[in-house]
Design a protein around this nucleic acid. Structure first.
Lengths: 357, 357
DNA sequence: ACTTTAAGCACAATCGTTTGTGCATATTGT
DNA sequence: ACAATATGCACAAACGATTGTGCTTAAAGT
């Protein structure tokens, strides 16, 4: 315990010989407004500096009903996507004089629910949430008490709340189209957590791209159920051991593609010679992988900045909740992980010989 | 602003028809101790649940002088090393009922100093700090006010404060020795931020490994001054364009090696054929790089857990500050980025021909 | 029947800041 | 010289929870 000698307004007051009120007013720059004399002001400032006074933000927050604190709820801070997001939110927050209480909910909605309550209890002025699951009851509860909130990365149509997401549909559509342009016809999708908007949109983009090019859709080529590495491994393993092996795989996250790569190499396959790949989430290392990975890059920096700004506008302007969301474009970063195949009829014969073997 | 209808102890008190005191005692499980009747207790519990009461942690903290909050100061949360560290600290903290205020100081000591003050102001019960720079005055100030603190990743000998670090000396020594065992003689080191214990220890390990094998030390083969990617790029560029090009490079961080790889590929070189490499900080993707990277792995998970536990022991036991630190062993994860060269005399001739070219 | 003990709860102070108001004293105006 | 205004600051309440103590009524003891 650090009860050495807490310096409060009264400590200074006693030393200077005025009341705590005066100290408070001087330190908050209200000296002039309350006609504190120049000389008193200087003495107070001096004393405060000498004593190393730091205002008690608990007491302050209790009194003025503002904490300059927001809550940040993240499924997994060790995931580079979320950590760069967090970083940019932090930087914006600092500029605005806000602190962040971080809550890593370990991809569990249960912890998410608990966290929202805890953060309310801690009197955050707002919440930035990257929801882990598909539930949104607890989020509705937050809307009800009119606590400012911004949803990031995912989106709930039933929720009247500002959000920032990537254009996952388009990103996915473009990626799959790129496969098709390179004459791929059997394209598998290792998806992430089901029933999330992120996943829905990406799957929809995938299906629509196939449909647009008249490629029959086969449910069997969508596998997986989480954004984690393990799911990528398992999903790829399954796909690679199918009778009709896909020529291309699109992975719904950076972690999934890492797992998929593990499976692919384990099976003795090469990217892109024997299997092509595209991964969501561009990473610094994407360029340096065994095969530089073609990725669907999201604007993580902007996502963080916008999220914070959307939150601030709710907090400051007391503006009626701006229910429309921001959707950020993605960029297909073409590298070397997609092979240009021979036109279709060639593939068919290859396929035949493989099955016949 | 969410002033919908704040539920306080008094709200419940009024509804139930007892005093706020009673509510407080019931909710904190002290009913029996203060002889609150069973029936009152139940009514209170019921009402609290109905109203969705959440205690105001500001008021609570102000009164009881505990916030169940700690401050976490990190140079760059988007760096995977720090983010996995943060994650494990968060998980431990949650178990213990603590929240974390995150402070990303963007590798700037100035922000670190400000953050320590701000966090004090917010009445955190302790601080876990990964210091950005070599200064430690502000940390001494924290020791002086007896605020519990743990230093992670780096270490200041002059600071009587518990710390958790990796055995950077040994990690570096082993890595360089491994180079030497593979007959490398011209080994360069791209170092990180100067005057930090991390860097000092790693450089020392490098020098001692050379010395042990009677390899002359040449100052010119230590380059760099930061743990960032750019420094890795610049450092590698310089090294690769030297008359006597090193056959091996050890990079002091994951970011440095990423930058170095960029430079190496840009120069049209291959790892490990033309240049061998070892990087500090093992990463999930280390296995999947163009050449799987041999790394010096740190025990990040344990580091986080231990850091939090060291902090808790200070907070709870009021134990006299346990000044000794914990040093965690590193592991050399051997992959494919180091080439076994011909014994020394061969290399010399190669070197000659290169220079003569 | 009268004192003693227990049961069941409320009062009021406190944590450190902030803020509306009010009270002296000093200065100015006439 | 006296009223009016300005100057410089202090008082006290409030934010919401906690806690030592004390008060009232009921039960128990003799």
């Amino acid at each position: 315990m650090n009860k050495v000698r807490r310096v409060t307004l009264h400590t200074i007051a006693k030393q200077v010989g005025v009341s705590a009120t005066t100290i408070s007013r001087v330190l908050s720059g209200q000296a002039a407004r309350y006609r504190i004399s120049k000389s008193t002001e200087e003495t107070v400032l001096q004393a405060a500096a000498e004593l190393g006074y730091l205002p008690d933000q608990l007491a302050r927050g209790l009194r003025i009903k503002r904490t300059h604190t927001i809550g940040l709820i993240i499924p997994d801070i060790s995931n580079p996507f979320f950590s760069t997001l967090a970083r940019n939110i932090e930087i914006e927050a600092r500029k605005a004089g806000y602190s962040i209480i971080l809550s890593d909910i370990q991809e569990e909605t249960q912890l998410e629910v608990e966290s929202t309550r805890l953060l309310q209890s801690r009197k955050v002025e707002g919440l930035i949430i990257c929801p882990a699951g598909e539930q949104s009851e607890h989020l509705k509860a937050i809307l009800r008490i009119e606590l400012p909130m911004v949803i990031v990365d995912r989106h709930f149509p039933e929720l009247e709340c500002p959000y920032v997401v990537s254009d996952n549909y388009k990103g996915s559509f473009e990626a799959v189209s790129y496969f098709i342009e390179n004459n791929h016809r059997i394209i598998a999708f290792i998806q992430g957590r089901l029933h999330t908007s992120v996943n829905n949109d990406r799957v929809r983009g995938y299906r629509d791209a196939l449909k647009k090019h008249n490629i029959p859709f086969d449910e069997a080529f969508i596998v997986g159920d989480s954004f984690g590495e393990r799911n990528g491994y398992v999903g790829a393993k399954m796909l690679l051991n199918r009778a009709s092996r896909p020529t291309a795989i699109i992975a719904a996250s950076n972690l999934i593609s890492l797992g998929a790569m593990r499976a692919i190499y384990e099976e003795g396959l090469k990217i892109p010679d024997e299997i092509s790949m595209i991964s969501f989430d561009d990473q610094p290392y994407s360029d340096y992988l065994a095969t530089p990975m073609t990725t669907v890059a999201q604007q993580t920096t902007e996502m963080g900045q916008i999220a914070f700004k959307l939150l601030m506008s709710q907090i400051n302007l007391e503006r009626p909740r701006d229910t429309e969301g921001v959707v950020l474009s993605t960029e297909l970063k073409i590298r070397k992980s997609v092979k240009k195949l021979e036109p279709a009829f060639m593939k068919e014969t290859k396929e035949e010989t493989f099955i016949g073997a």
